[in-house]
């Protein structure tokens, strides 16, 4: 009698574990684009963290761009869509700039980063599978500063 009850309980516990595994597999399956890899880092301008800068990774050959925006401490993490982190694996042109237009067209937000980092970027990043860290140390005297990119 008691043995019987113990046997029953172990079976139910086992089935609960199995179901939990099944649920986990169902939830995890179908997530994530295999072409994307996590990219993060810190952007500094003349040694100081650069906040509110748009960071863009544009694949040289296959795929489309990922976006990031730097926090107050200059850190960024690339996103492909609003809920998908990462940038395309492979060679990426990197563009970093603060310039933009205001949403109601009442003026523009000034650019502080020289054009060799955005409109005529020379930055290149090799994104590999797994986690990538790219820190960019920008110099404000590296080139001239251009207006909002209308090119």
């Amino acid at each position: 009698m008691t043995r019987n009850r113990i046997a029953k309980r172990t079976i139910s516990n086992r089935s609960v574990v199995a179901l939990a595994c099944l649920a986990a597999v169902t939830i995890l399956a179908g997530c994530g684009n295999p072409n994307l890899a996590d990219v993060r880092g810190v952007v500094t301008l003349d040694g100081k963290p650069l906040p509110d800068a748009f960071v863009k990774f544009i694949p040289v050959t296959e795929g489309a761009a990922s976006y990031g925006k730097t926090e107050a401490d200059g850190s960024y993490r690339m996103k492909f869509t609003d809920d998908e982190y990462g940038a395309f694996i492979g060679s990426n042109h990197v563009s970093i700039g603060t310039g933009d237009v205001k949403a109601d067209n009442s003026g523009s937000i000034p650019e502080v980063v020289p054009n060799v980092y955005n409109t005529r970027t020379t930055l290149l990043a090799e994104v590999t599978k797994g986690r990538n860290t790219f820190d960019f140390e920008l110099k404000s005297d590296a080139g001239k500063v251009e207006k909002v990119d209308m090119d």
Binding site: F54, G99, V101, N105
Partner: peptide, 24 residues
């Protein structure tokens, strides 16, 4: 005027995330 209200172009990718720049 606001030509972008009537036209879009191929230089920006499809569906940029919501925090992308307005120019984008």
């Amino acid at each position: 005027d606001a030509p972008e209200a009537l036209f879009r172009v191929g230089r920006s990718r499809i569906n940029p995330p919501s925090f992308a720049g307005n120019a984008e």
